[in-house]
Design a binder for these strands. Sequence first.
DNA 1: AAGTGGTCTAGACCACTAC
DNA 2: TAGTGGTCTAGACCACTTA
Lengths: 252, 252
Amino acid sequence: MSTLAINPPALGGTRYKEVKSAILAALSAGEWKGGECIPSEKRLAERFGVSIGTLRKAIDELCAENILIRHQGLGTFVSMHQRDRHFFRFFRVVRRDGDKAYPVVTLIDFKKARASREVAAMLGIETGARVFQFVNGLALHGKTVLIEHITVPEAQFPALTEAKLRNRPNTLYNFYQDVFGINVVETDERVSVALANEIESAQLGVEVGAPLLEIRRIAYSYHRSAVELRVSRLNTDEYEYIGARPGRDEEK
Amino acid sequence: MSTLAINPPALGGTRYKEVKSAILAALSAGEWKGGECIPSEKRLAERFGVSIGTLRKAIDELCAENILIRHQGLGTFVSMHQRDRHFFRFFRVVRRDGDKAYPVVTLIDFKKARASREVAAMLGIETGARVFQFVNGLALHGKTVLIEHITVPEAQFPALTEAKLRNRPNTLYNFYQDVFGINVVETDERVSVALANEIESAQLGVEVGAPLLEIRRIAYSYHRSAVELRVSRLNTDEYEYIGARPGRDEEK
DNA sequence: AAGTGGTCTAGACCACTAC
DNA sequence: TAGTGGTCTAGACCACTTA
């Protein structure tokens, strides 16, 4: 049907913004899934009743936001952020000499819980809502240097189990995408200093009270809806956090 | 003359990339200075012998990189990153509740020195080259929470003096732009944990050995030429560092 | 009213990928 | 060879700014 046809620059302001919203809506609705190819520019232009140039401008923005990926001669695909080199877009820890390595992840703990007021506020859910909480240890070059405390809402991750988590073949965000249809496209991170507790001390091989880098991350899906809360603690003896690159506009 | 005219997709690959390079070259040459208006799109299109659409694509990318800023009805301007809201593109410290405040800067120390091997490597200059080193204390909400150790090459900052530094009206990067014609357009930052020394202890009001967040920044001008090295130490009792926002592509 | 950038069109031709 | 996205054109009209 043409319920998806676009009207004159009504609500969104401009045609290409309307087209962009329509594509985003189709993505949210699951019309095209992670890694799949969306229709050709020509077909989409016809579907939305705009010229190719306008359609391209909409897709340009979605590509700039890493929501879509173009491949010349192949088509335009729904981004799978977590594969290959894209991995380091979200994993921002490197050795002091700049060497980037893939971490070996170990699941340390897994449990069901209820969202505290703070957690609920950050995830945009109700206080007391059911959540899963799990803890990962990440090893780089054979040594555990990072502990992650992850919280996700049960509502968005139905039937998540420790076994599924342990047996996932890919990265965590890839797992979210494949199993739950959740696409992490953006994160906010705040960094500060914290002191190692007993558990971290044991896992990281540092003394209790040793200073660690604490990274608090909220991960978002398409319409900036929060899907995951993650508090990580990093031993910065040999590794560092890659900070900002204000190449693009970030605040407005 | 038409030495600036563009040839068929020769070296750079595509027309708009050539145009982009030509504009970047004109900027480096100082043809248009910080804050100034560059010629209209129509005029530039004629000058480079391309259509408006192609010229716009070149400028689109330069705007995306925050090198130019468009103002509808007014013109396109050479970006002054450090003014107003743009300030927080480079100043990535906020109170834990998210409140953003402008820091009050105090010059604590200023001296001439020679570049060590490490500093020289990071700044892309020769070991032993003359540099200026100065130290700032930054206060937020009336309390000093950040100490910056800044190193700049004398070659690029001729006749920099303590007095000039102290009397600058604007932000530091604005000062670089106005006085030395140096445009900071990009930075790399690495974050780790460090322990307060005596000086930091006194300035920040923490104990010697208290854990601080250390941010090491290299600031770059147009062609990714390094212009400043800055090591900052932050007391994260009440403030945090704003980390990555992988909304855009950063590594390739 | 004049000048600017912002949007949009309806094509053309090229480069790349797959078959 | 057919289909895809990538580049480029030569305009039109709109929205905004300044005067």
